[in-house]
């Protein structure tokens, strides 16, 4: 073996990679936020909504969960312009990732909602709470608490999955890495550093979710 590793050019351009990492975090956080909203609404529709609406949500969830994210991104970015919906790369990335995140979140939140005993909902209504109050205090909060670990792992998978948006030319960490590779021809070193950056981000997410979980679910219940 005669290859000499040279990490110097990689670290000289580390700010490029750090910028990419910030973009990755932005994409992931937006997708997680929108996904949580889609997930909550979708889960509520599946449990209490009218049958046809619930069926549509099920189709959405099953379709997204059973096709690769990369194909979904290609449909959004390359496919939609032919029906007149032209999106920039980062718009397509955010929409694709959010739809993807939403589908997984629906299933997780639904499991949480169904874990709430019926009697608790009835007790809430007996206390004179309105349906929205019951939903907020009796259902969704305890439901999220039950499925919090599953949600946290799913969100980390979304962070990792966001690496795929580089293939629709959205600017994030892998995109920055490919650019750096084209200038330095050091792919192995670059992708090694990039992998460690992702590892640091997942560890950071894990710690953050742990703290958030302690903070959000410590009182009451």
């Amino acid at each position: 073996m005669s290859y000499e590793f040279s990490f110097k050019p990689v670290f000289r351009n580390i700010d490029l990679l750090l910028e990419g990492a910030v973009a990755t975090l932005q994409f992931s956080v937006i997708a997680i936020g929108v996904g949580l909203v889609i997930g909550t609404i979708g889960a509520a529709t599946k449990v209490w909504g009218p049958k046809p609406l619930g069926f549509i949500v099920s189709c959405y969830v099953d379709f997204i969960r059973n096709t690769p994210l990369l194909v979904q991104l290609f449909v959004v970015f390359f496919g939609l312009p032919s029906v007149g919906i032209g999106l920039s790369a980062s718009q397509a990335a955010i929409i694709g990732l959010s739809i993807y995140a939403g589908a997984y979140t629906v299933e997780i939140v639904r499991a949480g909602i169904q874990a709430i005993p019926r009697s608790q909902i009835e007790a809430g209504l007996c206390l004179g709470m309105g349906p929205l109050q019951v939903f907020r205090h009796v259902i969704i909060f305890p439901a999220l608490k039950v499925v919090y670990p599953a949600l946290a792992s799913q969100f980390i998978l979304i962070l990792l999955g966001s690496s795929l948006v580089s293939f629709i030319s959205a600017k994030e960490l892998f995109h920055a890495a490919a650019y750096l590779d084209s200038r330095t021809f050091l792919p192995f070193e670059i992708y090694l550093v990039v992998s460690f950056m992702y590892l640091a981000m997942t560890l950071g997410f894990r710690a953050l979710f742990y703290v958030l979980g302690r903070f959000a679910f410590s009182g009451g219940n």
Partner: peptide, 12 residues
């Protein structure tokens, strides 16, 4: 392996 994207592993 669980903390890095499959894409990174593939490229490595």
């Amino acid at each position: 392996i669980q903390g890095t994207p499959l894409l990174g592993q593939l490229f490595l």
